[in-house]
Design a protein around this nucleic acid. Structure first.
Length: 415
RNA sequence: GUGGAUGUAGCUCAGUUUGGCAGAGCACCAGGUUGUGGCCCUGGCCGUCGCGGGUUCAAAUCCCGUCAUCCACCCCA
């Protein structure tokens, strides 16, 4: 077999049975939970004009600079496979006009980032995301965070932690950058090579360096909130107060940084211990994006579904178990019986009885083996004898007992 | 984009050190039962040893390249 000729592109995989059942269960549970909060689904295109992403995420972000699948179509337009979901939803909301204010939308679907794959990271991966549009209001942030925890708990997840921080308002950024630079400059020589680069290019990134030597230095730096306006600090305090009121255990992590430019005020991240080095199960925040002539304020989060699956497999084994299928297997001895069983199977299926049968006219032993493998609880046997008498032989696979049943009584016996 | 590990039957993997007939378990198929599954017994099928090139009398094994997977960095979900 030549496995190299036709296989998915690097970092992309086929999702099928048996794992697909877990995906479907997570999605169904998510739709149920999000509906409780008034969210409705939106399915936006997977491909957008490149500008939809470069404008909203920020030209200098890593996602835009080195991770996007961008190509030129036959009309000479620059298009991009979506690396995240928020930009497309905002592009959709732009068309809603004033109706977009207060809109609550969610999406589930594939995203694309051309990165080196590793544990919990694919080039085509899937996100469930929600967006709640409306003017900044700490109560909205708190409600969305509470909903997110509600959803994770509905999935049976336990081993996660919520870290919260604030980006402040855009006007705070020069002061934050300046303040952080002043505080870090005396330690510049002691930082790792990456951090020395970050000091120039994106100083916030010093805060979440993984190296122990850098973390010790970072721990001694003042929190970024110290350089923010009173308005920004009050917003964070109010979010924290509300979360406490509704029983959400949030802690501020001054080292939490989120990369995209559009974030304002509250940002948060949920980590899970089952995920390996890429331990962010979900990231969220409040954002402000200008598209066309409209500025959108919103708050939302995205959950990496591949990572959610990994976490559920660890935390919630019962959801992971294959659900038993109740099924009847039809065994046919001879061509006439096969024809009759094909017809009977269709009738049973129309009545909601899942059934299967061997179409290859194999030996009875082979058919019984197939029946056993299918997990059918009942086997229905027909040969010349049964056809003549207008009966079927029902065999109980659990205890091996069997008896003849008139065709007319079959449905009642199976239900 | 950088670094490490790996790629042999449908699946999980031995075999690679030291070049010498392509292997095991599971799965699958058939028989052991004229019309009866699981357990057991017997037999059978299954390979471009990821792909391409090189060295050699001889390559799964050594060398070069390439593709893919896993893990980590970077970054993110």
């Amino acid at each position: 077999m030549d496995t190299s000729a036709f296989q998915p592109m690097q970092g992309m995989t086929d999702l099928a049975a048996p794992e697909i059942a877990l995906w479907q269960r997570l999605e169904a549970e998510a739709r149920r939970t999000l509906a409780l909060y008034g969210f409705t689904e939106v399915r936006t295109p997977v491909v957008e004009q490149t500008a939809v992403f470069t404008r909203s995420l920020g030209e200098t972000t890593d996602v835009v600079q080195k991770e996007m699948y961008t190509f030129t179509d036959r009309g000479g337009r620059s298009l991009t496979l979506r690396p995240e979901g928020t930009a497309g939803v905002i592009r959709y909301a732009l068309g809603l006009g004033v109706e977009s204010d207060g809109a609550r939308l969610y999406y589930i679907g594939p995203m694309f980032r051309c990165e080196r794959p590793q544990a919990g990271r694919k080039r085509q991966f899937h996100q469930l995301g929600v967006e709640a549009f409306g003017a900044p209001n700490p109560a909205a942030d708190a409600e969305i965070i509470a909903m997110q925890l509600h959803l994770l708990e509905a999935w049976g997840l336990k081993g996660f932690t919520l870290d919260l921080n604030t980006r402040g308002v855009p006007e705070d950024r020069p002061a934050v950058t300046q303040g952080l630079a002043d505080a870090a400059r005396p330690h510049l020589g002691a930082l790792c090579a990456d951090c020395q680069r970050r000091f120039e290019t994106n100083i916030l990134r010093l805060l979440d360096c993984k190296k122990e030597s850098c973390r010790q230095i970072v721990a001694g730096l003042p929190p970024t909130t110290q350089f923010m306006s009173a308005e920004s600090r009050q917003y964070l305090d109010e979010v924290l107060r509300l979360l406490q009121k509704i029983g959400v255990p949030a802690r501020v992590n001054p080292q939490l940084v989120r990369g995209l430019d559009y974030y304002v005020h509250t940002v948060w991240e949920i980590r899970h211990g089952a995920l390996g080095a890429q331990d962010a199960l979900s990231g969220g925040g409040r954002y402000r994006v200008t598209m066309g002539d409209k500025t959108f304020d919103g708050v939302g989060f995205a959950i990496g579904l591949e990572r959610a699956i990994m976490a559920v497999q660890k935390d919630n084994p019962t959801l992971t178990q294959e659900q038993p299928r109740l099924m009847v297997w039809l065994v046919s001895m001879g061509a006439a019986a096969l024809t009759a069983n094909l017809d009977l199977a269709q009738n049973l299926r129309r009545q909601g009885v899942a059934c299967g049968l061997d179409l290859a006219a194999r030996s009875m032993k082979a058919q019984m083996r197939a029946a056993n493998k299918s997990g059918a609880t009942t086997v229905l046997i027909r040969g010349d004898q049964e056809l003549e008498q207008g009966t079927v032989t029902l065999k109980n696979m659990a205890d091996g007992t069997q008896q003849a049943v008139p065709l007319a009584e079959l449905t009642a016996r199976l239900m």
